[in-house]
Simulated scan of single mutants.
Amino acid sequence: MTTTAEFPSLMLRDVHADERPRERLIRQGVQSLSNQELIAILLRTGTKKESVLTIANRVLKEFEKIHELKHATFEEIVSIRGIGEAKAAQLLAAIELGRRLAQKQVDSRFTIRSPQDAATFLIPEMSSLQQEHFVVLFLNVKNQVLHKQTIFIGSLNSSIVHPREIYREAVKRSAASIICAHNHPSGVPSPSPEDIDVTKRIQEAGFIMGIDLIDHIIIGDHQFISLKEKGYM
């Protein structure tokens, strides 16, 4: 069987109808399609000179790895030859929908029993962020996630992270405990002295408020470190 992925320069009219991406999806299921073919379906049409498969292949070459597409901006996509504003918007909408669906899978009253659980909940969204985000999970007495909130965006600094902002929200949500987390865009989750200092300040405020800081998770490139497991709390 000849697949369109093997010959990216083929025009669709040169490919047997049964082997075209949309027809293969209908007949064999979406899992049978290559990344190139999935992108081609999203783009829908090519140009007078190039097939949609050729343009889809160019998208993959531009971003090298499929997961890099989640970082793509509108300007980057529309700069690719053969892609206009409409096609760029279609791609970005599909990427965002996929991200939201992935997050939704872990958002429904997720129970956190370990640092790994917390990381599983947070990594899908936080490992791809280009700036540092400081996020707090508010938990009930069963360690179920009541609410997730980004407290601030930017480099972690003890003068910026105010425990009162965190615990004001915790009281509002009737949270029994909290878990703090932030990402390192460098991909390396090793804690800095500032990370440890901020954690201790939040933990001390929690003792006074009667709301336990369970852990502080630092997220890198699909890896994490628990400050509690490392003995910093």
Rank of each mutant, 00 (worst) to 15 (best):
M1A: 12
T4R: 12
E6H: 10
E6C: 06
E6S: 11
F7D: 08
L10F: 11
V15H: 03
H16S: 14
E19A: 14
R24W: 03
I26K: 12
Q28I: 07
G29M: 07
G29V: 08
Q31G: 10
N35R: 09
N35T: 10
N35F: 11
Q36D: 06
Q36N: 09
Q36W: 12
I39H: 06
A40W: 06
R44I: 09
T45L: 08
T45A: 12
G46I: 06
K49Y: 12
E50P: 04
T54Q: 13
T54F: 10
A56R: 08
N57T: 09
K61P: 05
K65T: 11
T73N: 08
E75Q: 14
R81K: 15
R81A: 14
A86Y: 14
L91C: 05
L91H: 05
A93S: 13
A94Q: 04
I95T: 04
E96G: 06
L97I: 14
L101K: 14
Q105W: 09
S108F: 15
R109S: 14
R109M: 12
T111W: 07
T111M: 11
R113V: 11
P115L: 09
D117G: 06
A118W: 00
T120M: 12
T120Q: 13
L122M: 09
E125N: 12
S128P: 02
Q130R: 12
Q131K: 14
V135E: 05
N140H: 01
N140K: 04
Q144E: 15
Q144K: 09
K148E: 03
I153G: 00
G154E: 02
L156C: 08
N157S: 11
S158M: 10
V161K: 03
E165H: 02
Y167T: 02
Y167K: 03
Y167M: 03
R168G: 05
A170I: 00
V171S: 06
R173W: 01
S177V: 01
I179P: 06
A181C: 11
G187Y: 01
S190L: 15
P193Q: 12
E194M: 12
D195I: 06
D197I: 09
T199V: 07
I202V: 15
E204D: 13
A205N: 00
G210R: 05
G210F: 04
D215G: 10
D215Q: 07
D215W: 00
I218Q: 03
G220Q: 03
D221V: 02
S226N: 11
L227F: 06
K228Q: 14
Y232Q: 09
M233D: 01
